[in-house]
Design a protein around this nucleic acid. Structure first.
Lengths: 212, 212
DNA sequence: CGGACTATTGAAGACGTTCAAGGTATGTGG
DNA sequence: CCACATACCTTGAACGTCTTCAATAGTCCG
C-alpha cells in the first residue's frame, strides 16, 4: 500500500504499554501501523478509563493529528508495535496517490466512533461485547490477518471493559455466556467466531454499522 | 463568516422534524446552519435511538459528507432550521479562504464525538446531563447566542435522553436533582447556568473536553 | 520458583429502567 | 377566544442489569 522506498529509515517500534503519543502533545509524524495493536483513551480524575479508538495493523494513528496538529488524547501500545512515520499534514486532495488511504481512514474512524456512541449509549453488555469482537474480526480480516473464522485478539478482559464501558467482572461473565451459547471461542489471545451471522444478530447492528 | 454574495439563492429552510438528510443518501450539498437545531442519530430495530451529533447555529452539517460522499446516518431538524447550501467537497487546504471553518469544524466534531464516548461509556446520569448542558451552553456562547449565563435550549427531555443514553424518566429525575442543587435553571426551552464552574465539576470533565 | 498480572466465582447492593398513571403545556380549528 | 387533541412533563413502585467488594485460581515470564 505504501512506497517501499526508504522504509527502514522511517520505521519505529514501541513496546507494550509505551506511549505513541501523550495528551496535548504535538506529534511530529503520523504513524502507519504495520504490526501490533494500540489504543487511544481518556482517564477521569477518579481512575475511570474509556478507550476511544483502537489502532490495528493497516490503521493510521492518528488522522486527526493532521487536522488539529495536536493529540488531544494519549495513545498507548497494547502489544509491541511496529509502525512507519508519515508526514503529519493534510494530503492534497488533488493528489490522492501516495496517501490515498488517508481520507478513507479518517472517514472510517469517524464512522466507527459514531457506531460506538450508539453501542455505549443504548446497548446491553452482551451486544457491546459482540460489537467489539465482530469489529475486531472484520478489521483484522480486511487487513489480511484473519485465518478462516479466527484472528488474534490480544486484549485483556480489562481492556475489553474499558472499550465497552463495562467492568472487567461483568465482561468476564458476558464472555462466559457467549461461550456457553457457542457465539465465540476465545482463549489464549485468539478469537474464533463459529457463526458470523449469529454474532451479528446478537450485536444488534443496523446494517450500516460495519462492512458486511 | 461567509460571503454574503447570493446568499438568498442558496438559503434553505426545514421545518421541525423534517429530514436534512436520510440514511445512505448522497447529499448534494453541505449545510451551514444559520438558525435552529438539528441532530444526527441512529435507530435500532427495536426502537432504541441514540443521537450521535447535534448541529447548532454556526455548525456545518455535515463535514463528513465531504469525505465519504454519503450520509450514513439520518439528520433531522429539532426546531425549524435555516441554512446555507455549500459545495459538498473537500476544500483545498491551500486555499483556506472562503471555507476556513471546514477543518476546524471537522476536527471539533471528532473531538466532541470522542468526548461523548467517554461520557456514555463511563459517566453517571448526573455527569452525562451536566456534560450535555455545558456543551450546549458553550457552543451557543461561541456562536454568539448566549446572553449572560443563559441560552436557548429547545431539546425535550426525550431528546436529552436519546443524547445521554438514558430514559426520559430518569432524565426528568436527574434534572430535578440538578435544579434542587441550584446547578441549572431550565424551563420553557430556556437554560440558565448560575455557576458555570460548579457544573463543570459535576460533569467530571478532564479539562481537555471542551473550550474553557 | 516467585511475583505480578489476569481470569473466575459469589454475594450484596446501587443505579437506572420499566410500567403505569396523572398533570401540565402547547397548538390548532371551530 | 375557547375547546380539544396531542405532546410533554412529573410522580410512584417494582424490577433488572450491572457494579462493587472480596477471595480464589490460573497464567505468564524472568
Amino acid at each position: 500500500m505504501l512506497s517501499q522506498v526508504a522504509e527502514g529509515e522511517n520505521q519505529v517500534h514501541f513496546r507494550m504499554h509505551q506511549f505513541l503519543a501523550r495528551e496535548n502533545e504535538k506529534p511530529d509524524a503520523m504513524l502507519y501501523v504495520q504490526e501490533g495493536w494500540a489504543c487511544r483513551y481518556r482517564l477521569l480524575s477518579d481512575g475511570r478509563r474509556q478507550i476511544t479508538a483502537l489502532y490495528l495493523p493497516g490503521d493510521y494513528c492518528d488522522p486527526q493529528w493532521a487536522l488539529g496538529g495536536v493529540a488531544s488524547q494519549p495513545v498507548v501500545a497494547i502489544t509491541n508495535v511496529r509502525a512507519l512515520r508519515l508526514p503529519c499534514r493534510i494530503p492534497s486532495h488533488a493528489g490522492f496517490d501516495g496517501h490515498n488511504g488517508f481520507w478513507q481512514a479518517l472517514s472510517g474512524m469517524i464512522e466507527r466512533q459514531a457506531n460506538w456512541l450508539v453501542t455505549l449509549g443504548r446497548k446491553t453488555a452482551l451486544e457491546r461485547v459482540a460489537h467489539l469482537l465482530l469489529e475486531l474480526f472484520e478489521r483484522m480480516r480486511q487487513a489480511g490477518l484473519a485465518y478462516g473464522q479466527q484472528c488474534a485478539m490480544p486484549l485483556t478482559q480489562m481492556e475489553i471493559a474499558d472499550m465497552t464501558g463495562l467492568t472487567p467482572v461483568h465482561v468476564n461473565r458476558t464472555l462466559q455466556s457467549m461461550r456457553a451459547r457457542g457465539l465465540v471461542e476465545l482463549q489464549s489471545k485468539w478469537l474464533r467466531i463459529p457463526e458470523l451471522q449469529a454474532l451479528r444478530e446478537v450485536a444488534a447492528l443496523t446494517g450500516q454499522d460495519m462492512a458486511a
